[in-house]
Design a binder for these strands. Structure first.
Lengths: 210, 210, 210, 210
DNA sequence: TATGAATGAGGCTTCATTCAT
DNA sequence: TATGAATGAAGCCTCATTCAT
C-alpha cells in the first residue's frame, strides 16, 4: 500500500481533474459523446471552461482517458471478486474455471450497465494496458490484470503457452461478441450465447495449457 | 444470374448515388469521417449539395451504407477467391481449411489496405447481413455469406452445431484481433499472431462439427 | 462608359457584398478594426454570419479590400475635382500646380475626415494600384491615377523622368507626413506644415521634369 | 558619461523588465504581434505571467515601448557610424552628404533586417522623440538625434530653415518609401530606388539651407 | 515581489440544412 | 430533379486578467 502525499495545490488540481472526468463520464454515458460539449462538462464539474483545457486536449482526449480508466476498473473489480470468491469457498477452481468466472463477472456487469457497454464500445482490452485510474490523495497501488493472471497461474502450477496472445484474444472475443449480442440480440440472445462463449473460452484456454 | 434492366432516368439516379458513395468513401478513408463534410462529398461527386439529401439522410447514413457495402464486398471477394482456388486445384480442402482460407484472404486484404481496415473498424460482421452493394445497370445477384457457407457444408456432408453463433464468433474474433494487431502491432506482430489466430479458429470450427 | 449586365442572382450577391463592405467600413471607422467583430459586421449588413465568409476570408481581408476601395475613391474624387476646376476656369495650371491641386484636395479631405485618415493609416498608395471599388449593377469604368497623370502630362507636353517613382514618392510623402501632422500636430500644426509640404512636392516635381 | 548606480533589487527588476522586452521582441519579429500571447512572452522570459503585469499594461504597451527602443537604437547606431566615419577619413563631408550617410546607414540596416523593418513598420520617426532604450546597470547617456544634428550643423556653420519639419519630412520619406520598396519591390527595386531617394533628400536639404 | 492556476467572456468558424430558382 | 446561395445555431478554443499563495 504505497501512499503519496500531496500538497494543497496539487490536491486541488487532482480534485478538478477528477471532477471533470466524472462529469464527462456521466454526460458521455447519458447523452453520448457526440452530443456532449466541453461547456457542459465544465459546467457540471463546476469549473471554468478554460480549466478543462488545462487538463485535457479536447473531448477525445478525455474520452480516451475515461475508457482506459473504466475498462481498468472493470478488471480490478473482476479480480477482486474472484479473490473474494476463492477465499470464501472451499471449492477448488481450475484455471479455466477462473477465466470463466472473470468472464462471467465482466459480461454480467456489462449487460447490466448498457451505458457503460456502449461507452467502452469494443475497447475493453484498453484496460489490460492502461494507465492508472482516477488519482486521489491516498491511493492503493493497483494490480495489473496480466500480473494478476500470471501469479494465479504460478500458484496453480500451470503455465500458458502464448500467454499474451491468449489473454488478448479472449478479451477481444468477450468484448466484441458481447457488444453485438447484448445490444442487438444478434445473432442470438445473451443468455443463449453465454454458454457458447464460455465453451469457446475453455477451448482456447485448455489448448494453451502446456 | 438474374439481371435487372433500368431505364435512363433511373440509371442517371444510380450514377449520382454511386458517385456520392465513392466520393464519400475516398474522403472517409483519406481524411476521416469526422473531417469530411457534405460539401466535400457533393463537390467530389460533381453534384449539388442539395442532391446529397435526395439520396442520404446525413453523413452517418452514407457512412453506414458504405460500411455495409465494403464489408460485403470483402466477403464476396473471399468467397470468389475460394471458389476459384477449389476449382483450380486437385487438393481436397477440409471445412476448417476452407474457413482458414477465407480468413487468410480477409486479413491479408485488410493488412494491405489500412485505410479500409480503419474505416470498417470493428464492423466486419455487418457484411454478413448487409444490404446489397453498389448498384449498377446490370448486376449479378450476390450470394449471402451464410448461404454460401451452408451450401458448402452441405456439399461436404458436414454440419455445424450452432451455425449462426459459430460464424458470428469467428468473424468477430478475426476482426477485433486483427484491428489491434495490424494497426498497433499489439500485443504481437501480425505475422506472429496469424498462426495463433488460425489455430483458434480451427479449434472453434472443429468443436462445432457434429 | 462600359456597362455590364448582371442577372438577378449575381445582383443579389453584389448587394450582399456591398452591404458587408459598407457595414464594415462604418464599424471600422467608429469603433476601430480591433473592436469590430464579424458578428457585428454581418448583423449590420442584415446577412447571416456565414454569409460573411462566402465573400471574405476574415476581418483582415475585408479591411484590406476596404482600404483599396477607399484610397481609390479618394484619387477618383481628386481627379474629378481637378477636371472640374480646369474646365471651369480660364486660369492655366502648370504641372506642379496640378499636383499641388490634387495634393491639396487629398489632404483637405483627410483632415476633415479623421476617421478615414486613421483607417487608411499610411496606406494611401494602395489607391494607386488597387482593384476596382464597390461594384454595382451598372458601373462606369474608373480611370487609374497613373493613366490620368500620364495623359495629363502628355496634353501639357511635359514628361517626367522616373514617372512611377515620382508619383509613388509624392503619395507616400503626403500620406506619411499628414498622418502624423493631422493626428498629432507633430512636429507642427497642419496649416503651418502645408506650405512646407507643397514646397517639397514642387521641388520633386520640377526636378523630375525633363 | 553620466552613470547611474542601482542597488541589487532595482537591478533584478531591470533584468526582468529587459528579459520581458527582449522576449517580446523576438516573438513579435518572428511570429508577429497578433500571434504572440502574454503567456509566451512571460514563459520565454522565465517569469510568471503575473509578473508581466507588474511592468506593462498589456501587449500593446510593450509593443510600443519596443518600437521606441528599436527605432531609437537605429538612430544611435547611425550617428555613431557617422562619427566614426568622419574621424577616420580626411574627406570633408557636406551637410547633405552627412544626411545621405545617415540615410544609407538606416536603409541598409532595414533592408538586411526585414523582421525589424516589418516590426517598426512605418514608425521610424518614433525614434526621434522616444524614451530611453533598454536600461542597464551602468548606462551612458544617449544623445538625441535632433540635438546631434543641430550641433553638427553648428559645427559646419550651416543652418537649416524649418529644422524640425525638414528632419521629420526626411525621416518619414525614408521610412514610408523603404517599407514598400524593400518589402514589395514596389514600384521599383530597392537598388534602383536608392539613388532616386538620395536625390530627393538632397533636394530637400539643399532647399532648406539658408 | 512573484507566481501560475483558474477563469469565462466572446471571438472565430464551420457546416448541416433549407429553399428559391 | 438538381442546384448552391444563404443561413445561424452551435461548438471550439484562446487568452487577458485576476488573486490566493
Amino acid at each position: 500500500m504505497k501512499k503519496i502525499k500531496m500538497n494543497k495545490i496539487d490536491l486541488n488540481k487532482e480534485k478538478k481533474k477528477n471532477d471533470l472526468l466524472s462529469s464527462a463520464y456521466e454526460l458521455f454515458t447519458t447523452v453520448g459523446v457526440e452530443n456532449t460539449t466541453i461547456t457542459q462538462i465544465a459546467r457540471k464539474a463546476n469549473v471554468g471552461k478554460g480549466t478543462f483545457y488545462l487538463y485535457f486536449q479536447d473531448k477525445y482526449d478525455i474520452r480516451n482517458a475515461l475508457i482506459s480508466i473504466k475498462t481498468n476498473e472493470i478488471f480490478q473489480e473482476a479480480m477482486k471478486s474472484l479473490n473474494d470468491y476463492c477465499s470464501h469457498t472451499s471449492e477448488k477452481l481450475s484455471v479455466s474455471d477462473k477465466f470463466i468466472y472473470i468472464t462471467d463477472y465482466i459480461i454480467t456487469k456489462l449487460s447490466k450497465d448498457i451505458a457503460l457497454l456502449k461507452y467502452i464500445s469494443k475497447n475493453l482490452s484498453w484496460g489490460l494496458y492502461s494507465t492508472p485510474a482516477f488519482q486521489s490523495d491516498e491511493k492503493e497501488e493497483l494490480i495489473d490484470f496480466k500480473t494478476f493472471t500470471m501469479s494465479m497461474l504460478e500458484k496453480d502450477g500451470v503455465s500458458l503457452k502464448n500467454f499474451d496472445m491468449t489473454i488478448f484474444t479472449i478479451v477481444e472475443l468477450i468484448n466484441s461478441t458481447c457488444y453485438n449480442v447484448i445490444l442487438n440480440g444478434d445473432p442470438i440472445t445473451f443468455s443463449d450465447y453465454k454458454p457458447y462463449l464460455f465453451r469457446c473460452i475453455r477451448l482456447i484456454i485448455n489448448d494453451s495449457i502446456a
